[in-house]
Simulated assay, not measured.
Amino acid sequence: MAVPKKRTSIFKKRIRKNRWKRGGYWAALKAFSLAKSLSTGNSQSFFVRQITNKTSE
């Protein structure tokens, strides 16, 4: 017969939740940093094809 487990304390639950949120924070920070380097053209890891507008005369 299944026996219910003990309840997790609020303290432990809060620690796990904060660790999970921190992972999202670092992912967002890295994504923002990459986007910033791509927009300024200083990216070392991605090759971005520059679109040039040629006007015919």
Results as ranks from 00 to 15, higher is better:
residue 1 M to N: 09
residue 1 M to D: 06
residue 2 A to T: 04
residue 2 A to K: 05
residue 4 P to C: 05
residue 4 P to R: 12
residue 4 P to E: 02
residue 4 P to M: 05
residue 5 K to H: 07
residue 5 K to N: 06
residue 5 K to M: 08
residue 5 K to A: 14
residue 6 K to G: 03
residue 6 K to Y: 06
residue 7 R to C: 00
residue 7 R to I: 09
residue 7 R to V: 08
residue 7 R to A: 05
residue 8 T to R: 04
residue 8 T to D: 00
residue 9 S to I: 06
residue 9 S to Y: 04
residue 9 S to D: 11
residue 10 I to N: 03
residue 10 I to F: 06
residue 10 I to S: 03
residue 11 F to C: 07
residue 12 K to P: 00
residue 12 K to V: 09
residue 13 K to V: 02
residue 13 K to W: 07
residue 14 R to P: 00
residue 14 R to W: 12
residue 15 I to G: 02
residue 15 I to K: 14
residue 15 I to T: 02
residue 15 I to Q: 08
residue 16 R to K: 14
residue 16 R to W: 10
residue 16 R to A: 12
residue 17 K to A: 11
residue 18 N to D: 14
residue 18 N to E: 15
residue 18 N to Q: 15
residue 18 N to F: 11
residue 19 R to F: 08
residue 19 R to W: 07
residue 20 W to G: 02
residue 20 W to E: 07
residue 21 K to E: 10
residue 21 K to A: 12
residue 21 K to N: 09
residue 22 R to H: 05
residue 23 G to M: 02
residue 23 G to L: 02
residue 23 G to N: 10
residue 24 G to E: 03
residue 24 G to T: 02
residue 25 Y to R: 13
residue 25 Y to H: 07
residue 26 W to K: 15
residue 26 W to A: 03
residue 26 W to C: 02
residue 27 A to E: 11
residue 27 A to Q: 15
residue 27 A to Y: 12
residue 28 A to Y: 14
residue 28 A to H: 14
residue 28 A to E: 14
residue 29 L to E: 10
residue 30 K to C: 07
residue 30 K to G: 07
residue 30 K to R: 15
residue 30 K to E: 11
residue 30 K to P: 02
residue 31 A to N: 14
residue 31 A to Y: 13
residue 31 A to S: 15
residue 31 A to M: 10
residue 32 F to K: 12
residue 32 F to N: 07
residue 32 F to S: 11
residue 32 F to P: 01
residue 32 F to Q: 09
residue 33 S to L: 14
residue 33 S to C: 10
residue 33 S to P: 00
residue 33 S to F: 12
residue 34 L to A: 13
residue 34 L to P: 00
residue 34 L to H: 14
residue 34 L to W: 12
residue 34 L to Y: 11
residue 35 A to H: 09
residue 36 K to T: 11
residue 36 K to N: 11
residue 36 K to H: 10
residue 37 S to T: 13
residue 37 S to Q: 10
residue 38 L to N: 09
residue 38 L to Q: 10
residue 38 L to V: 09
residue 39 S to T: 03
residue 39 S to N: 08
residue 39 S to H: 08
residue 40 T to K: 06
residue 41 G to T: 01
residue 41 G to Y: 03
residue 41 G to F: 06
residue 42 N to K: 15
residue 42 N to R: 14
residue 42 N to I: 09
residue 43 S to D: 11
residue 43 S to L: 01
residue 43 S to Y: 03
residue 44 Q to F: 03
residue 44 Q to A: 07
residue 44 Q to P: 01
residue 44 Q to R: 12
residue 44 Q to N: 08
residue 45 S to W: 08
residue 45 S to Q: 10
residue 45 S to L: 09
residue 46 F to I: 06
residue 46 F to R: 11
residue 47 F to C: 02
residue 47 F to Q: 04
residue 47 F to E: 06
residue 47 F to A: 03
residue 48 V to M: 05
residue 48 V to Q: 10
residue 48 V to C: 01
residue 49 R to Q: 01
residue 49 R to C: 00
residue 49 R to M: 02
residue 49 R to F: 01
residue 50 Q to K: 12
residue 51 I to A: 01
residue 51 I to Y: 02
residue 52 T to W: 09
residue 53 N to M: 05
residue 54 K to Q: 04
residue 54 K to H: 06
residue 55 T to I: 14
residue 55 T to M: 04
residue 55 T to Q: 08
residue 56 S to H: 08
residue 56 S to N: 06
residue 57 E to I: 12
residue 57 E to H: 06
residue 57 E to A: 10
residue 57 E to K: 13
